[in-house]
Amino acid sequence: MTPIEIGIVDDSLSAAVPSAASRRAANPAALPGNLLTVNTISMLTLVVLLAAWWATTTAGLIAPLFLPSPQSVLGKFWLVATKGFMDSTLWQHLAASLGRVLCALVAAIVLAIPTGIAIGLSRVAHGILDPLIELYRPVPPLAYLPLIVIWFGIGELSKVLLIFLAIYAPIAIATAGGVRQVSQNRLRAAQSLGATRFQLLRYVVLPSAVPDILTGIRIGLGTGWSTLVAAELVAATSGLGFMVQSAAQFLVTDVVILGIAVIAIIAFALELSLRALSRRLAPWREQGIS
């Protein structure tokens, strides 16, 4: 082996394992001289917000009816978690809400991914399905909720259906986009290895679209969650939205704030876990490979 070859082999070995240093260099927040990362600044913002809330309420600047103190919300949290509010504990309300979203999500994934693939691959399916989806997608779910209630009553089906519709469109659209963007060379490479049409779909098109499908699920779940809470405001006997709504009717402001906080935390957790899943399933996207 010549010295030049040795040098190149070394180089490729180090390239095989991206070092922490090269990753840090890509992040502008970690430039020398910047001691605070974006995450630290974000945490500090939340801490300042919480402190301001605590200070204004403890000093009695705002009546508890309008803004209860963080301590009393925390106390209410314990009470609602153990004793319950409106015949259900916090966990039962949470389980009711999550159950609805989960049902709708599973149904949406099962139906929207094949729809998206069909739209992405077939001109006819695109022509038929695209206007249907685009027709209802921009309409706020609460606008067609009355119609769903007239058709399907005020039971679970209506609520799940409403959330399903909110999740379905983003997943179908994202899947179609991912399917259409499959790299031509990847398809050609598989064809020149002897792939059949079905094999192209199974081994190239679908895996290529996975990151886009996950993005669709993430967006869909976000809109689905906000739709759910709205749906429960209208007709429900349990759920986080229902809890907030009935607390507001009795002016129990600390339960209202508690409910909003739980809704926000769940939304945030869903978002983060889907991002983590996306990083796990499609790590090459982080490296700029589509």
Binding site: R186, R188, A189, S192, P207, W284, I289
Partner: peptide, 11 residues
């Protein structure tokens, strides 16, 4: 066929 942009499957 071997392509310029490798066309490998990253998954």
């Amino acid at each position: 066929v071997v392509f310029q942009d490798d066309a490998l499957l990253p998954w």
